[in-house]
Nucleic acid binder design. Structure first.
Lengths: 122, 122
DNA sequence: CATTAATATAAACGTATACTTATATAAGGA
DNA sequence: TCCTTATATAAGTATACGTTTATATTAATG
């Protein structure tokens, strides 16, 4: 989820589109004109931005007017800060990682080369 | 700059590394152990995160202890919000784009909705 | 109902990126 | 000094991604 969002923003053309939509709502052909890039290119980038939840669209006749969903962006950043602040053991998908991290304490880098049976001290 | 940062975060392995470093400082071999991935892989991802300014490192003997630079991240997000809020004509690199955007009004796709507070005439 | 306008989708292609394997460097011990 | 530990870098490879060209879809218009 965060991956999708940050990846979406981390591309120059999409970042420009976002910045433009932050100034005003625009349809595909406007973006095409303003950015001077091809229509499929705009369309494909918009798809990525929509999937990331950063852009929404409404229809007006044949046109699709796109908006930057600023509220959504703020929410995502807040959620990301929560994600970064939360204790690791409360995080889904980090169970194994957290176990290995706990087993690390004190030992740091000296544990992994104990592959030889004769190294094991009982 | 924003591109570099968001691209850096928008990759699953790097996001995990960041999240781990947010919990505690770790050296390369620790990350290797905790995430169960190869040493060059960790090293290369850390390079990207450092270049984005998200991770800093200090040396302890042969080890390089990595930290998540949370302050830097906060600064970047603030800068990004500024970037998104600023009027287009104050933005470097958007000169031509802004001209074409202005030339749009009335033409191409109708509308000219003032989303910018400074457009509001009192 | 055929045509045009606005946008989406598909296929093809080149470049970028993530990962692996192999090797290099740098700092501590023996 | 030679060896080990910790990390970086290089080269190779496969996949993901951005772009273009071509075509499909969907909604107004004549």
């Amino acid at each position: 989820m965060f991956e999708t969002v940050f990846k979406a923003i981390g591309e120059p053309t999409r970042l420009k589109i976002l910045r433009l939509l932050a100034a005003q709502d625009l349809c595909v052909c406007d973006l095409e004109e303003v950015l001077q890039i091809s229509q499929p290119r705009v369309s494909q980038h918009l798809k990525v931005l929509k999937q990331a939840g950063l852009v929404s669209e409404r229809r007006e006749a044949q046109k699709r007017i796109c908006s930057f969903d600023r509220g959504q962006f703020t929410k995502i950043i807040e959620a990301f800060n929560d994600f970064m602040d939360k204790p690791l053991d409360e995080l889904e998908g980090f169970e194994q990682i957290n176990i290995r991290l706990s087993n690390l304490d004190g030992k740091s880098c000296e544990r992994k080369q104990c592959t030889d049976i004769s190294d094991i001290i009982l």
